[in-house]
Design a protein around this nucleic acid. Structure first.
Lengths: 222, 222, 222, 222
DNA sequence: AATGAATGAGCTTTCATTCAT
DNA sequence: AATGAATGAAAGCTCATTCAT
C-alpha cells in the first residue's frame, strides 16, 4: 500500500515518540552498543556506528551514558548481570552432587555457546586489564553466588564420600569456565589452525560430554 | 618555538642510526610492535606509539611492513612461530604416555605463563575473527605438528591399555590449551571478580597439578 | 547505573528549593554568573558551570535571562551600577580641589583593587568591542555623573588659580582610571614579566601616592 | 579571461606549493591566528575559522603548532617579540633625559595605537591570568631591556639634578604603559560611556602631550 | 633503497539552546 | 509561571597513510 508523504509522517508519529520512553531508548542503545563493542572492541567501536543503528542520535548516547567509556561499562554491567541472572535460576541445590555438576556444565557451555558476545566482551575487557570492571561497583558483588553454589555441591559430594576432599571451588569454576569460554572465544583461531568447525551439529554435545567426564573423573579422584 | 610532539619525531630522525642493517631494524620494530599490539589490540595500537619507541621513524614501518595491518600480521606470525619452535623442542616421543602428557601440560602452562603477550595476541586475533591468521600462509601449516605429537601419545597409551579409546587429539589439545590460555588471558576479570591472585607463588604448580590430574583421570577413563 | 554529569544536574533539580522567591533566585544566578564571566570571559564561561554552582537549574537561567548573552548583559549592568553607586557616595563637592582629587584617586584605586571582577568584566567587554554595553540602555546614562564631579573640581581649582586652565575632565578621568584599572587588569602579565607582586603590603599606598602626585603636579601645571 | 578547467589547475600549480615553504606557511597561519585570537579571545577563536582564512588546512595547524593553545602561545610570543624589537630600536641612550622620556612616550603611545591587536592579546592573556605567558620561556627573558633603558634615563636625570630621586623605573614604566594601553584596550567601553572618539585627528597628539606632561612634571617633582 | 614532510577523513565530545508540558 | 527532558550543530583533535624525492 502506497502512503502519501503526509500519511507517512502520521505513521511515524503513531509510534510512541522516543522522547516519551527513555528506558526503551536506553535499552535500544545498550543492545546496539553491545553488538558494536563485542564486534570491534572498546577502541574499535564507533559511537557514530552505534548511533546510526539506533533510533536516536549520537547526542542521546552522551546524554544517557556520559561517554563512550561510560556506555561500554554499562554494556559490560548488563552482560555480567545477564549471566548472573541465568546462574541464579539454575537451582542446583536440590540435585545429587554429580547431577548438579553435569547440569552446571550444561548451563555454562550452553550459555557461552548461545551468547558469544559475552565471551567477546570479557576477552576485550581482559585486553584492557579489567580496569573498567574493577571500577564498576555493580559488577563487584555480582559473581560470588556461583562460587557458593559450587562450594555447596562439592561439600555435599565430599560428605557423601564420592568427591575428593581437596577441590577448591574457584579452581573448579575456572576449569569449567576455561573450557566453555575458550570453545567460543578462541573458535576462530583454533578453528582456522586445526580445521575445526564448532558449528557442526553434535559438537556442543560432544564437548559437553567431554568436559563433564573430565571434571567428574577429576572430582571423583580416580 | 617549542616543538610539537610530531615535530619531535622529526628531530629524532636526524640521528643517523641503523641505516645499514635492515634486518635489525625490522626486528626492533617487530619487538616494539608486539608489545604495543599485545597491550592495546589491533585498533588500540598506535603506529605513532610504536615509532616513538623504535630506533627508526614511522616511515620505516610503512617501508618494511606496508601498513599497520601488515605489521600486525608479522607480529602474529612471529608469535605463532615462537610457540611452535618451543613445542618442536619438547621431544615427548621417547616418554611413557602418562609422563608425556604431564610434560606436555608442564610446557604448555609454563609457556603461557611466561609469554602472556602470546595469549593476548591470540585473544585479539579472535576478536577480529582470525581474519588475518586465515590470510597468512605462513601460519596455516605451522601448527599441525602438535596434533601429531598428541595423537602419537594417545595412540601409545591406548595400545598399552591405559588410555580411553575415544580420545580425540584435537579435543584433548583444546582441553589443555583452554585451561592454560584462560589462566593467562582472563586473569584480570577472573582475578577481579573472585579475588584471585595468579602471581602468588605456588599458583602455577597448583594449577599444573590440577589440569594434569583432570586430563589424566579423563584419559584413563575411570 | 552510575549517573552521568548531565543526569546529576537533573537529580539536583529534585530538591524543591526556592520556587517561591524569584528575585532571590535571580540574585543567586547573577552572583554566580558574575564570577564565571569574570573568570572565563563571555565565550569561556559555561552555562552549565553557572547552573551547577547555582541553587537552581540551567533551565531557570533561560527562563529569567533569555540567553547566555542576556545573562552576561545583566552581569555587566550590575557591575557598572555598583561602581556608580559608590562614586555617588563620594561627596567631593565640599572638599578643597586638591583634597578632592586625592580622595577621588583614593576611591578609584581602592575600588579597583577590591573589586577585580569589575576590571575583568570591562576588559572582556572591550574584547567584544563594547557591543553589549552599547545596546544596554540602563548603562548608557549611568556614568556621566563622574565627569560632572571632576569638571566641578577642576573648575574650582582653576578659579582658585591653582589648576591649569586646559584640563579636560574626561582626559583627567582617563589618566586616573587607566592607572587604577591597569594595576588590576594587567597585574598578571605585568607581574610575570617584571616580577612585580601587587599583593605586597604597601604596594597600594605606594601607587596611590604616585598617581596622586603625577595627577596633581600635572594639574598644577608646573 | 575564461580559463578551461585544465588551465585553471595549471594556474594554481604555478603558485609555489605551500609544501615547499613551511616557514611561509607558519607565518601565514600565525598572522591569521593573531587576528582571530585578538578578535575573539582564546576560547572564542575557532581553529576552523583560522584554517579557512589560511592557505592551508586545519591539519597543518596541528602539525605545526600542536594544539589551539600551542598556536595561541606562538601568537603571544610573536606579539611580545615584535614590541621588544621596536623598543630595542629606540636608542634613547644618546638623548637628554627629558627628551628621552618624551621619545619613549611617543614610541609607546604610537606603537599601541598602531598595533591594537597587541593590547587585545595582552588583555586576553590577563583574563587567563597569564598562565601561558608564565609557561613560555621565550617571553620570560624578553622584556627586561625596557626597564634597564628607563633606569638609565632616570639615573641620568637624577645626576643632572632635574629628576626626583625616588622614581622606581618599573612604576614609571607602568605609569606610561597604563595610559597608552588603556587608550587602546578600553576605547570601546570608555568611548561608549563618555562619547569619546579616539580616532579623531589630533586625539593621539593631545594624549601624547598630556601623558608626557604628567610624567615629566611628576619626574621633575614639582 | 630509504626517508622527511605533510595530510584527508573521521573521531569523540561539548556547547547553548529548545521541546513539551 | 516554571521546569524536566532532550538535542542540532559544531568544536578540537587524532588517526593511518601518502606525497615527493
Amino acid at each position: 500500500m502506497m502512503l502519501t508523504e503526509e500519511a507517512m509522517l502520521k505513521e511515524k508519529a503513531r509510534v510512541p515518540s522516543r522522547r516519551n520512553d527513555p528506558e526503551r531508548t536506553k535499552r535500544d542503545i545498550l543492545a546496539v552498543a553491545t553488538k558494536e563493542f563485542a564486534d570491534h572492541g572498546l577502541t574499535g567501536a564507533r559511537v557514530d556506528a552505534i548511533a546510526a543503528r539506533t533510533k536516536t542520535t549520537k547526542r542521546a548516547i552522551y546524554y544517557y551514558f556520559g561517554s563512550k567509556e561510560g556506555l561500554y561499562v554499562a554494556v559490560l554491567e548488563k552482560a555480567y548481570g545477564d549471566i548472573r541472572a541465568v546462574e541464579a535460576g539454575m537451582h542446583l541445590e536440590g540435585l545429587e552432587p554429580e547431577a548438579a555438576i553435569r547440569k552446571l556444565i550444561d548451563f555454562t557451555i550452553t550459555y557461552h555457546e548461545e551468547n558469544p558476545d559475552f565471551s567477546r566482551l570479557v576477552s576485550i575487557e581482559n585486553i584492557h586489564r579489567a580496569e573498567h570492571l574493577a571500577a564498576s561497583e555493580s559488577i563487584q558483588n555480582l559473581n560470588v553466588a556461583i562460587i557458593r553454589t559450587i562450594e555447596d555441591i562439592v561439600r555435599r559430594g565430599r560428605e557423601k564420600g564420592i568427591f575428593r576432599t581437596d577441590a577448591d571451588p574457584v579452581d573448579l569454576h575456572m576449569l569449567i569456565s576455561a573450557f566453555c569460554f575458550f570453545r567460543v572465544s578462541n573458535r576462530y583461531t583454533f578453528g582456522a589452525i586445526f580445521n575445526q568447525d564448532f558449528s557442526e551439529p553434535g559438537n556442543l554435545e560432544k564437548h559437553k560430554q567431554m568436559i563433564g567426564d573430565a571434571v567428574l573423573s577429576w572430582l571423583k579422584g580416580c
